[in-house]
Design a protein around this nucleic acid. Structure first.
Length: 341
RNA sequence: CCGCCCUUAGCUCAGCCUGGUAGAGCAGCCGACUGUAGAUCGGCUUGUCCCCCGUUCAAUUCGGGGAGGGCGGACCA
């Protein structure tokens, strides 16, 4: 595989790369890339869009490491109780493997690591303390503001969080730090801290974040604003039916984003097209080979939101189906006892 | 260790002084209107009033204790 093809695989469907030049340099060798997920709430379709890209990284022949950041899950305002860390870690790993497989790659090629395996090592702890001694509260707060839960009475844990994430890059020997664009603040701080220590800063690749179905940002607490990986076909249809989707508008349109970032990339991989059934009175069925064609028709008014929603629900459901089937519901229940009695 | 303040609907809070089991805004849900959703209009729901004990016919309200949280003081050897 030549460099430009690798580059295309690594960067397609991303929100930002910092920096392009540094990435090019790395791709001349065999770079390692890592992404971390804190096993907090149930995984949803937003995770799928970032995880789907891991398949691209594997195809580009990168060394992919996935960190299940168990300590981070607890450190961030105790989103996960300490006692549930093991169960949630197991659930996250299983779900992530399912998503990678659903994206057409082999999950066994990924190296999975858990935070407690190395974040408690003496040298890691020492570096953490040295970093804490040298970093102001406001800088860390600002870096983590998009990721760490904000509250009136923030815990110390939320300040340690970005520092540990920075040390993880080093500890896992990652040349590239990958994550959602919400991670940008933390990784930009990481790059500065690396430079301060005289180390080579990581290249950062950011995935776009899916908008919420109710318009605006996706909210973890608003169940109707996102599709869960365990949602069945009817639930998916119900949620998409209720989605904010103004005719002809692309802005804040969650339904279109689902198509762009999730459905079309996967259809692409399978070599399938997007087919919309439409009553004759409205013009009959439609077929799209690419997202751009679909967006054009939507903007022009040729494609009505209701017809899009109907088809979108089916495709979204079919895309998450393999993940849904792979998730062990008993494990899910023990990982979230307050939700599944 | 000491002092002061806070804890009421999913969220932000009012009510408590002058006891009679509670309200607003937002959110949410339903209906109307659009071939979707939203916006708009109409309607509706929601509560161990942090816990325990006491006073009282009656406590969210008064008294005592406790828990959780916040702020300040003291200490700076």
């Amino acid at each position: 595989m030549n460099d430009s093809e690798r580059r295309r695989l690594v960067t397609r469907n991303t929100a930002e790369v910092v920096t392009d030049e540094e990435l090019d340099d790395l791709l001349e060798n065999d770079p390692t890339i890592y992404v971390g997920y804190a096993p907090t709430g149930e995984m949803h379709i937003g995770h799928f869009t970032t995880i789907r890209k891991l398949a691209d990284f594997l195809r580009a022949d990168l060394d992919v490491t996935v960190l299940i950041a168990d300590l981070h899950a607890h450190l961030d305002d105790e989103k996960s109780p300490f006692e549930l860390l093991d169960e949630r870690t197991a659930y996250y790993r299983e779900a992530i493997e399912g998503m990678v497989a659903a994206a057409g790659a082999d999950p066994t090629e990924i190296e999975f690591v858990e935070g407690r395996e190395f974040e408690l090592d003496a040298d890691y702890s020492l570096e953490l303390l040295r970093m804490a001694a040298d970093t102001t509260i406001s800088r860390v707060q600002r870096a983590g503001s998009e990721v760490v839960r904000q509250s009136e009475n923030p815990k110390l844990g939320g300040l340690i969080y970005p520092l540990m994430q920075t040390l993880d890059i080093d500890a896992l020997d990652a040349d590239i730090a990958y994550g959602g664009i919400d991670q940008r603040g933390i990784y930009m701080l990481s790059r500065e801290l690396f430079a301060d220590r005289g180390d080579e800063p990581p290249v950062c690749v950011f995935a776009p974040l899916l908008a919420g179905l109710s318009g605006g940002k996706m909210s973890a607490s608003d169940a109707t604003s996102k599709v869960n990986l365990t949602d069945d076909a009817d639930t998916v249809a119900e949620k998409l039916q209720g989605a904010y989707c103004p005719q002809g508008e692309v802005e804040d349109n969650g339904v279109l984003e689902y198509m762009d970032y999730l459905v079309f990339p996967i259809l692409d991989e399978r070599g399938e097209s997007f087919e919309i059934e439409r009553p004759d009175e409205y013009g009959g069925d439609l077929v799209y080979e690419s997202y751009d064609e679909l967006e054009d028709d939507f903007v022009s008014g040729e494609l009505h939101p209701q017809d899009l929603k109907n088809a979108a629900a089916e495709y979204v459901s079919s895309v998450i189906a393999p993940v849904r089937e792979r998730i062990d519901t008993d494990r899910l229940a023990t990982a979230y006892p307050e939700k599944y009695e």
